[in-house]
Design a binder for these strands. Sequence first.
DNA 1: GTTAATAGTGATTCACTATTCACATTATAG
DNA 2: CTATAATGTGAATAGTGAATCACTATTAAC
Lengths: 199, 199
Amino acid sequence: MRAKKTASHIRQEQIVEAALDIIATEGLHALSIAGIAKRVGIVSSALYRHYNGKEEVLDAVLVFIRKRLMSNVDHVVKETRDPLQRLKRILMRHARMLDENRAIPHVVFSDWIYTGHPERKAKVADIITGYLGIIREIIKEGKNDGTIRPDTDTEAASVMFLGMILPAAVLSNVSEGRFDMVKHAENAWPIFVRCIAKI
Amino acid sequence: MRAKKTASHIRQEQIVEAALDIIATEGLHALSIAGIAKRVGIVSSALYRHYNGKEEVLDAVLVFIRKRLMSNVDHVVKETRDPLQRLKRILMRHARMLDENRAIPHVVFSDWIYTGHPERKAKVADIITGYLGIIREIIKEGKNDGTIRPDTDTEAASVMFLGMILPAAVLSNVSEGRFDMVKHAENAWPIFVRCIAKI
DNA sequence: GTTAATAGTGATTCACTATTCACATTATAG
DNA sequence: CTATAATGTGAATAGTGAATCACTATTAAC
C-alpha cells in the first residue's frame, strides 16, 4: 500500500530516527537506504526526496548526536555551579544517555563513518573535542575556586573523565548489555573524585 | 605476473599481516578479500587456498590480537612483583602497543566484526574481559599487600584503568594521530595512582 | 624424470546496495 | 475546483565484493 504523503521535514526526522534505531540494534555497517526506508514505511527511492543520499543521512545523524550531547551538558550547567557537582551530573546523565541511545557509541567508535571522508571524521573529532573542552573548562573552574587540586593535569584529567564512561560503553556493547553502565558510573565517580578533589 | 608459490603457513601469516595493515590505515570496513590479496601479491581467488573465507581471516586476526595483548601482560608480570609497578608498566606498554598497532582499537571498537556473529562477538568480549580480569587480580593483590587502598572498588577501578588508554585511542584515531597516546598515559598515571594508592 | 600434491589465475556467478528515472498519486494554494 | 508542486512507486542500472570453478604452474617426494 502507498505511504501517506508526508511533509519532508517530518520524513527527515523519521529517517534519522530509523537510522539511529538500526545502528543501535544491528550496527552501523548494517545501515542501508533500503533498511531505513522500510522502517520509515516508504520505498527506498522515496528516501531521496528527503535526503540527497546516504552521506546526507549520516550527516544528519551526526548533527542529532551532537545536539544530544550538548543539550546534556547545557542542562547540567544550568542546574548547579559547583564544578564537582557539574562533573558528577554530566557523568550520570551521559551514562544514562548512552544506555538509552546505544547508537551513539557505535557511531563514535566505528571507522565506517570515517575512512575516505576527512570532513566527516573532522566532524566527529569536533564533537568529541568540543565535549572534552567543556570538561576541561569545568576542571579549570574547580581549580580556581579551590574545589579541585591545583596540581591536577587538566588535559589528562578530562580525558580520564571520558575514560569513566567510554570503556563502559564498549563493555556494555560487547557483553550484550550485561554490563551496567549506570552502575559503573556510580561506582567510578567516588574513585575519580579522590583523584582530583582537594580534600 | 604469477606470484611465487609459497607454503600455506607463510601465506597465512602474510594474510593476517596484510589484513592488520589495511585495518590500521583504512579501517575495518575497508577490509576486502581483494584488498588483502593484492597486498600479499596474489589474486583474490588464491587467498581461498589459505583461508576458507573472510570469516576465517578475521578469526585469525583476533587470535593475533589476543596473543599480542596477553604477551604484553605476561612480560610485565615477570618484570616486577609490585602491583602498582605492574599496572604502570602494563599501561605504558599498552599505550605504546596501540600506538604502533593501530589496527587493534579498530577491531575492538568496530561493530562490523560483531553483528550477526555472536561467537565472534563473544571472542572479542573474552579478550577484553580476560584482560580486565588480570587487572582486577593485580588490584586485589595490591589491596592484600597494602599498596592499594582497601576501600577501592576493584571492578570500577579496573574499568577505569582501561579508561586511561581507551579514550586516548579514540582521540588518537579521530585526530589523525595528532593526539599523543603515550604522553597521555604518562600524565594520567599519577592521577590514577592518587585515586587508588594508599599514601 | 615422473607424478601427486600444492598453490596461483582469470572468468564468472551471486547477492546486495545505492542511485536514477519516468510515471502515479496526493495535498494544498489560489 | 483545479493547477501544480510535493511526495511516493516500481523498474532499471551500475557498482561492489565474496565465493566458486576449471584450469595452469610449481614444488617436492619417490
